[in-house]
Design a protein around this nucleic acid. Structure first.
Lengths: 211, 211, 211, 211
DNA sequence: AATGAATGAGACTTCATTCAT
DNA sequence: AATGAATGAAGTCTCATTCAT
């Protein structure tokens, strides 16, 4: 075996990348560490040198999850919920595109590995909060709390679904997403105006974004 | 090993039940056939007698998926979309409750086993179609095709999510579902009335349910 | 691999024999199960089929220890302690000769494996009791309890030593044993007569052999 | 890893101490060099820097064996064999107490490592010679060579047993030792007087201690 | 039809040892 | 002199699968 120096990335890094790809493709259990070593072009022993147990690979992978926090101000178009959300989704897409496999992997292994599950839930919660924050910031006023919750939940669901699980489902493409997004946005504003003012449950200024 | 009496189920049946539970709990790869035999209380050899390859167990499991087709008429409350959907979801819940594990299992193994993936997609498509059919049947008139698509997609997503994947997510409980359902229903009607009549893209009678 | 039917002993038996020899020769830890399989001429998997964990081999070996209980009456020559002990030792030698390796092995692994240690201690205790019983049965009368205890302990030590540990020590051969045995026997009788009668601590009839 | 200061012992020394403890506790084969490094609080590489092969640790350990030669004159009480032996044993106990682990270790590994075996045998021979020398020096006269040999052998056995192997056996405590010692001593004198003078096999001055 | 012994490929993991620095 | 990354051989154990009965 000639291989010796890092080549493009450190050996450790190459191992992680290989693991991510193989886990995502075939599942954690079905992927032998030997195949990971092979793909990373490192000797088998090195995999266990860096990650004593196979599960440590998963842990390390989870810790590599990019922080997908997006500054609300950057995407919000005041007064236009649909456009704001559209820009949020676009930004999320851009950021997450690098980790679709990883995200997908998480869904598969969440049952069996605590810690993976936790990371997954955190991520989802963060997503909901972000959507919520954008809706509020773009908010036209007069929105009911419950409606915002529903809208955030549904959109987060759709986004998360596309990024993590969609592999199995019929490939809906971006059109579907756009349509649903628009539906949600319009629904929000429609409901707002329909209610007129002062139903009592609309938002005051006190609502802290992200909570 | 004295065990013999078919008693509560044939040996074959017991094996399948055991496999379903174990696969769902730990994943396909992580579940040894020996443990399946053990749980089914059958000799180890019998598992392979009925299912020569381990994957055959998965195949058989998929074929056992209950038909969840629900007669539209049974749940529709004409003129009341929200109520109609609510009854649809309740009925789905009732039927699917017996196969949550199985459903969940399918998500996990869909990547690796064609046939599982196919079954999963069929199921999802069927679900969308059903929601759609109900919306149409309860339909207040003046609904845009795009809106119906979006609404069906979102609700199907929420339902499917709860039944198959939700195990990992924060337990939202039925309230969340109800709120989202209501949001979608109101959105639909709100948008309908808002558009008034005759925008040209509302539904004719031609739309075939299930397509 | 053609091998199939038991040949000379059952496969299980051959595995145990191979394990005993190899463990005794090289120690438990230094002996790979693969070499055991090789020597027993069975496929590697079969070793683990019968003995799931390597340590189970040790356990099984311990359970195979022959019962070395010898009927006191058979060896005792009344009135002649030396001859009685000589015959006891001869009989023990005859019985144990088949398990010297095993005995030796036990000493080595007693530290690390409870259960091995227990078996070893039981064996030793049994040995002491047996020597004691023979001395009593051959007893010339007027023996002090303490002397009998000492004599039993010392002889048991010498025997046990020869059978289990002696491999490392200078090979003393049977002559040494004979000399020590005679020394002990004469010492006993010498001490008895020297004390004369009635020092008060000699044995009554109440002393239960084996206790 | 800040560790640096030689403080209580040089790194090499700390490694040896750690090795001794771990080998004695778990056996040579079962003890990874990495654990030795850990316990000695030195980097893993340093262990192999000082001791290229793992077996070198054993060799070095053997060479560290304290010289247990005791000056005969220091313990002998002329005319009183029992007391002389008692003092010898006490002195041996005092010296050896620091190396019980090491002694024990030697027994375990003697099979597999020549050199360890040799050291062990030397030690034992030395012990026998020492007991012999003490008996002679305290000697009451009229002792038969064979008796002295037997007595030396038995006592050496008992001592060696306590120091090296006794870990497994029922804990007999010092009382047992004392009783056996006394038994041997009395036996010697009893036999001596019993024989009276001139059986012809008593000792001349020729017997070289240590042989 | 049913069973459990038997098989062997291969998984994960450990570890002594080497080597570049 | 000292270190820790790197290596690969080997070990234990698991398991799907086959086979004789």
């Amino acid at each position: 075996m000639a291989r010796a120096r890092p080549a493009d990335g450190s050996a450790r890094e190459r191992i992680l990348v290989a693991a991510e790809e193989l886990f995502a493709a075939g599942g954690f259990d079905a992927t032998p560490t030997s195949r990971i070593a092979e793909r990373a072009d490192v000797p088998k022993g090195l995999v266990h040198y860096y990650f004593r147990r196979k599960a440590d690979l998963l842990t390390a992978l989870v810790e590599r999850l990019p922080d997908e926090r997006i500054e609300t101000a950057k995407v919000v178009v005041p007064g236009d919920i649909a456009q704001s959300l559209r820009r949020l989704v676009a930004e999320l897409d851009r950021r997450l595109s690098s980790s679709v496999m990883l995200s997908h992997l998480l869904w598969r292994e969440a049952d069996t590995h605590t810690g993976v599950r936790d990371a997954l839930q955190d991520r989802y919660q963060q997503l909901v909060a972000q959507v919520r924050a954008v809706i509020l910031a773009a908010g036209v006023g007069g929105l009911a709390v419950a409606d915002i919750d529903s809208a955030s939940g549904l959109l987060a669901l759709a986004v998360s679904y596309r990024h993590s699980v969609a592999r199995h489902a019929v490939d809906e493409g971006p059109d579907e997403m756009e349509r649903e997004l628009e539906f949600i946005a319009s629904a929000l504003t429609a409901r707002a105006s329909e209610r007129g003012a002062g139903t009592g449950d609309e938002l005051g200024g006190a609502l802290k974004p992200g909570q």
